[in-house]
């Protein structure tokens, strides 16, 4: 037979054969996609196991579970919640206090109290102090609780189990003069709570490598002390002016807490600070 005859004959292949071919082609493609997904899942699982074996277990053996926490050398001015993803979120101050008091009688470790067994001394001190006082310092403006942002999908108060300087922080989210911002508060560690330190001195004591007036870093225009008048006292605040940001960061010690606020100085003015207190 000639080439053309053969080619024509093949072209005239019965339709059911082509149908069978395309059905099989589809099956093969589906199987390939499924095998790829299974392969990716196994590779991810293997990677996790390898990570646990090579990094997590040696670290836990050496330092206990506290070894998994960050050191106290976190950089100042970090506007994000930090490494630890564990946060507790609340709409009201009362919800937060109730959550602090919730016991972990089931032992799952998923309550604020339950995490004391894994998060170390600073955390335990913080939680125990809140529960002993049945309160935590909350910001007031003209002796009234701040106006929270009350934005749908967002909480008004967040408790971060470990954040700046490796300490637990409570972030309040008020709104003032059209600006939403955060007021971040933590207890000073027990060792320095009674020493009447300035913010810069306190930060130096807690985290020696963190930004203070004697230790600045690339990205900071200026870091300096400034006397600030609050509603009920004057404090020596540490002001950080950032190069690439119109907002400043202010830190000050208020009694036994360290306060940190990132703010737009054109909106959150000295007037606002003069009305600020903590209850």
């Amino acid at each position: 037979m000639t080439e053309k005859k053969l080619v024509s004959a093949i072209t005239e292949l019965d339709g059911d054969i082509l149908d069978r071919y395309f059905v099989m082609k589809q099956d093969l493609e589906r199987k390939k996609k499924l095998n790829k997904r299974i392969f990716i899942k196994w590779v991810s699982l293997a990677a996790c196991v390898a990570l646990i074996i090579s990094v997590v277990i040696p670290k836990v053996r050496k330092d206990g579970f506290a070894g998994l926490l960050p050191s106290n050398n976190s950089s100042f001015g970090n506007d994000s919640p930090g490494i630890y993803q564990t946060t507790f979120d609340f709409d009201t101050y009362e919800d937060m206090i109730r959550a602090f008091r919730k016991s972990d009688f089931l032992g799952f470790g998923d309550t604020i109290n339950g995490l004391k067994s894994v998060l170390g001394e600073e955390y335990t001190y913080f939680v125990d102090k809140v529960n002993k006082n049945r309160a935590f310092p909350r910001p007031m403006i003209n002796n009234e609780e701040i106006t929270y942002r009350n934005r749908e999908g967002f909480f008004n108060i967040i408790f971060l189990v470990s954040e700046l300087y490796g300490l637990p922080w409570v972030w309040y989210f008020p709104v003032y003069n059209g600006q939403e911002f955060s007021i971040r508060v933590t207890y000073l560690p027990e060792s320095i709570a009674d020493e009447n330190l300035t913010a810069s001195e306190a930060i130096k004591a807690i985290a020696p490598d963190a930004i203070n007036i004697d230790n600045t870093r690339e990205g900071y225009e200026n870091v300096y002390n400034k006397h600030i008048k609050l509603a009920d006292r004057e404090v020596t605040a540490m002001i950080c002016e950032l190069k690439a940001d119109t907002e400043n960061i202010i830190a000050f010690v208020y009694g036994d807490v360290l306060v940190n606020i990132k703010y737009d100085p054109e909106k959150i003015t000295e007037q606002w600070f003069s009305e600020l207190s903590f209850k």
């Binding site: 005859k5 024509s8 004959a9 005239e12 292949l13 019965d14 054969i17």
Partner: peptide
């Protein structure tokens, strides 16, 4: 005719 016949044979074989 021959092409159609050949096509049938090949189709039956492939089937």
């Amino acid at each position: 005719m021959e092409t159609k016949e050949l096509a049938k044979i090949i189709s039956n074989y492939v089937r």
